[in-house]
Each structure stands twice: as C-alpha cells, then as structure tokens.
Design a binder for these strands. Structure first.
Lengths: 231, 231
DNA sequence: GCGCTCCGTGACGGTTTTGTTACGGAACCC
DNA sequence: GGGTTCCGTAACAAAACCGTCACGGAGCGC
C-alpha cells in the first residue's frame, strides 16, 4: 500500500505535518510549494497520488488540477484536495476540476490516511469488467473470453491476466517488475524472466489470429502492447 | 460492478461532475435534466440505478420516485437521492418515497461510489420464474422441470438451483465463491470443492440430452454456461 | 567487428487445479 | 421406522499450468 505521494502546499508547517504523517504511514513523499514546482516534479516522476492545497500562490489548485487532467500521462493520477472548512464553493469547483476527493483543514491524520487508502485502492484494480478491444482483438473479462473476428483464443489463467493488464494499459511500457506486481500480485517471489516466458506463451496463443505482433519488446525496459504494431 | 446509471440533475455543472466521476469508475451514464426526460429514458432503457436530485424543476424528485415505485417494471430499480446538506425533512421524505439511500451535496466521489456499490450489491440478483431456453435446453422454474426436445432431465434441488442460476446468467464466468453465494445462500459454510461435485452431478444428468457440454470449466476462475460450447 | 547484455525459445519437473468416485450422515416421505 | 434421496466431504487420478533453466541468437555500445 506504500505509494509515492506528491504534496503541494505552500505553508511550510502544514507541508511538514502532512509529510510526517504520510511517511509514518510508509509512503514516500515528494514536496512542492506551488503549482510550478509541482508540475516539474510530476514530469520527472509520476506520483501515485497528489495531495493538493486549494489555496496556492500563483496558479490555483483548481487550475493545476485541470492541467493535470488534460495531459494523457497524468490524467489518471488521483488528486485529493485540501480546502478550508466550509468553502463549499471550493469543493464543488474542485470536484469539477477533476479532484477525486477532498479533505477539509484542519484534518485528522486518520481521516486523511483513510481517504488516501480508499483512493489508492480504487485506482489499484483498474481492471474493470468492461470488454476491451484493441486492433481487432477482443477481451471480455466477465465471460473470460478472448478472440478476434469470431476466432477464439485459448489462454491459461496467467496469460489471460497478463493480456488483460496489457490491454487495459496499452501504448505504455511495463517493466517486468511492474508486470509482476500487477499481474502476479504485489509480493510474489518469482524470477523476472518468468515474465518473458509468459509473454512468449501469450504471443504463441495470439499467433492464431495474427495478433502476436501486438506485443512489442522494448529492449532494456519491458513490454508494450500497441495497436500500432499491427501495421 | 459496472452498471448503467441514470443521472437526473438539472444543474449542468453538477450533472457533468457526476457523469465524469461515474464514468471514471467504469459505469455507463445516462443523463436527464428533469423528471419528464428521465421517465422517457427509463422507459427505453431500464437503468441499474438512478441518481436523483431532489430539487428538480417541474415534477419533484420525490414525486418521480413515487411514480417509479408504482410501475411494475421500475419498482426494483434502486434510487439514490441527492439532497442539499442539512435538509433533514427532505431525506426523510425521500426515503419514504422509496429512495434507497441519499447523498448530501457537496459529496465526495469516494462516498458516492461507495454508496452506489452498496446499493447495487444489496439488490440481490433475483431469479425470475420465466422459463429459460439455451441451446435447446429448457428450464421452467414455475413447474420445476428441465428438459430438451421432449426428453426430461431429472435433477436434485441443488442441481436445479445451480442450473437455474447458470442459465439466468449465461456466458459469464462464475467463481465457486459466487456460486456458493447465489445458489447455496449468502453465508453458508461449505467447501468450495462442493461446487465441483454438484457441477459434476449436473453434467452427468445433462448427458442424457448431450447438454453436459453446455457447462465449461474456466481453469483458475470457475464455471461458465455457454451455448457456444455446444458447437 | 567484438564483447557484452538482453531476449526468445524449448524442455522439464513439480505444483496446483479439477474430475471423478465412494461413503457416511441428514432430511424426507410414507 | 424403514427406505430412499440428497448432500457435503474426503481421497485419489488426471490434466493443466507454472516457474526455472539452459542455450543460442539478436541487439547495442564502442
């Protein structure tokens, strides 16, 4: 449950308070005192969650949130905003700007951590039951079926989860470690090369419909599923 | 867990906010800005849940809820109402009118989603008395008979309920835990392997009409009933 | 072009999951 | 109360699946 959390807060005392609490809960904390700093940090290291003060010098929290929501890379990063008590307008504006939740100051650390946990958990199993189709290949989680143009593709449980994850996050390169985390589970003790073997099995199964090319190898980094690879 | 949700809200900003959050959580959203529009939508596509603002122009939320509760088709659809903070009498009136839960504005997406989840889960997926026919196999709940092409199939009570559930939710993979929940009852203390044995008995009984192949094993996940398996 | 790292691939042994049968007991029906 | 049906569990067999390894080839930096 440990996560990288970016705290955007101009008041040093509150920033420190937040950081101490978060780190105590096992999270890793990045700090910024305004939107500009935050933007730069986000570019370099995508955090798992952003704690965003609503009253910032310079660009407002709302503006920053909106910016984040527009960028493809940061679109998914959950935002929890910090507002002063009773600023109902702010809350509505904040939720509209794309915040996932809000906490009013003064906040109790326990509530804050609970909300963070909830937001992170909601994000974690990003795998929904919606069918996904990429490059003609279709995967339906609820029926557990994979196929293309009527042709079914047979997969084992791990290959299915692997493909599901890749199709849920296409175009993105996933390291072997990330794949192990998401597909195998957080704390498994398995060799990274195992991923290779399952990628191999998955590709083999996908050969039947010529979709094996969907999965690209990114040397030195990992694997990527991309519709562009079909061309 | 993904559901079709009808949002009835006259304020465009809040409607948009709701829609964004719900879609983000994987739901499919229908929108209406008053009771009249909502009624028309409900007639055409029965949603799984209705999010209903209490302060609507024209017919009030309470009135609309009452209308829904009277129609046989919409009677079962759960309603969550949106009220302004502190309107206690609204909440009471709302629950009396048939709402299943309420959320006060401004709401946190976290809370809203949690309530939606709770309401959806609470609404037990009830099995109807309608006869079902799949792949030539016919099951009639009211007469408690199963058969295909004149040939009757003899089943024990548990096998019957199991087959009924599978036929009511075909194509979908059901885990052993889900089957225990829905076929045996929510909080029974039975081994999961028991499901296997009953599946076996069910298949055996269905051999008489060659319909045993209807039930597929999805290794690592559970079982699925599918007409496609007959081919 | 050389050496190094990284990746693809086939095979293999062990483990997990599922199929199948048998059995004792509970519930039920006359 | 005797007989029958049905149920849940255990136990064994079969099948599917998994993780690892070893080898060889491909890609990359210099």
């Amino acid at each position: 449950m440990a996560a990288n959390i970016l705290v955007v807060e101009d008041e040093p005392a509150i920033q420190e308070l937040l950081a101490v609490n978060l780190e105590h809960a096992g999270h890793h904390v990045l700090r910024a005192k305004d939107a500009e700093q935050a933007a730069s940090l986000v570019r370099h290291a995508l955090p798992d969650l952003i704690l965003l003060d609503w009253m910032l010098p310079g660009q407002s929290g709302a503006g920053f949130a909106r910016t984040l929501r527009q960028d493809e890379r940061t679109k998914q990063v959950p935002i929890i905003m910090l507002t002063a008590r009773g600023q109902e307008q702010d809350k509505i504006a904040g939720l509209e700007a794309g915040a996932d939740d809000y906490v009013t100051k003064p906040f109790s650390p326990r509530e804050l951590l609970a909300r963070i946990k909830a937001v992170l958990r909601r994000r974690a199993p990003q795998l929904t039951d919606e069918p996904i189709e990429i490059g003609g290949l279709r995967l339906d989680p609820s029926t557990h079926r994979v196929g293309a143009g009527g042709m079914p593709v047979e997969l084992g449980p791990t290959e299915f989860r692997l493909l599901h994850f890749l199709m849920a996050h296409p175009e993105r390169v996933h390291s072997r470690a990330q794949l192990l985390d998401h597909v195998w589970g957080d704390h498994v003790f398995v060799e990274e090369r195992t991923v290779d073997v399952h990628i191999r099995r998955l590709r083999k199964a996908l050969e039947a419909t010529r979709h094996d090319r969907l999965i690209e190898t990114v040397r030195g980094s990992g694997y990527r599923l991309s519709a562009a690879a079909l061309v």
